[in-house]
Amino acid sequence: MDINEYISSGILEQYVLGSVSSKEKQEVECMASIYPEIKSELEALQSTLEIFALQSEVSPPPKLKGEVLRAIAEVDQIKDDDISSASKVAKPSSDHAQVIRLSRRWAAVGAVLIVSSLAALMFFNYESQENLIALKDELNQNDQIISEQAQNLEALRQDYGQLASVNSVLTNPNTQRVEMQGTEMFPDGVAQVYWNTEDQQIVMDRGNMPPPPEDQDYQLWAIVDGTPTSLGVYPWSEESSEPAFMSGEIEKASAFAVTIEPKGGSETPTLSKLFVIGEV
């Protein structure tokens, strides 16, 4: 039994506020009688509550004192030996009828005891079921949190994988960097294409390009033998501005260009919407 753990569990505070079940009440009193540390902690908490009660002291009307004293004059104190002598009353009698009457009485007492212990049992059962339900709720919530975290982790892993392969293109000695400059549409614009001429992969860095209009996409083109070849739309993301892989493999190209196209991209570039362009 870790006493400090018990003290810091909060049960003592619940006890002094009168917010424990009768079972917990017994437990606290039992623990306090065994462990002096628990007892002194409990006493300190009780003192706190006493002060708390004293801070709202109000003198009752003077007449109340007389009423109280008159009332107790008519009430007997219940003593422990009263209780024990009461239980001694039922002595077995030699009279047969008396015995039967007594045993009937005891049967009744027994019945009452059984009923009350059943009630108590049901009560505790009800309490523990309540606890069980609360626990199940907590477990469900935890499960949910765990699966959310797992999804987050999976997403992070994918992001990481993506970045790692982008990085491998960027740092590859066979990769050629092509800088694209802004056109009249975007005079200060700069963006880059990283082209691995060996395995022909293309990575695009969006540079300082602004977010595309909502119903439109940026599309990357390679000019191959004077003809624009689509490398797909740039996957614009609010959260990340990292370079992204583009689709298609390019063996040779004389230039790269980005146009603004309707969402999803076009078969052929809209040349009036040429955004940035760079020669190899």
Partner: peptide, 21 residues
């Protein structure tokens, strides 16, 4: 308050100083 003091009088023998003040 009156009920409380009557109970205190009536049950004073079951008060256990070991359990608290």
């Amino acid at each position: 308050t009156q009920d409380t003091f009557v109970k205190i009088w009536k049950y004073i023998h079951s008060y256990d100083s070991q359990k608290g003040k």
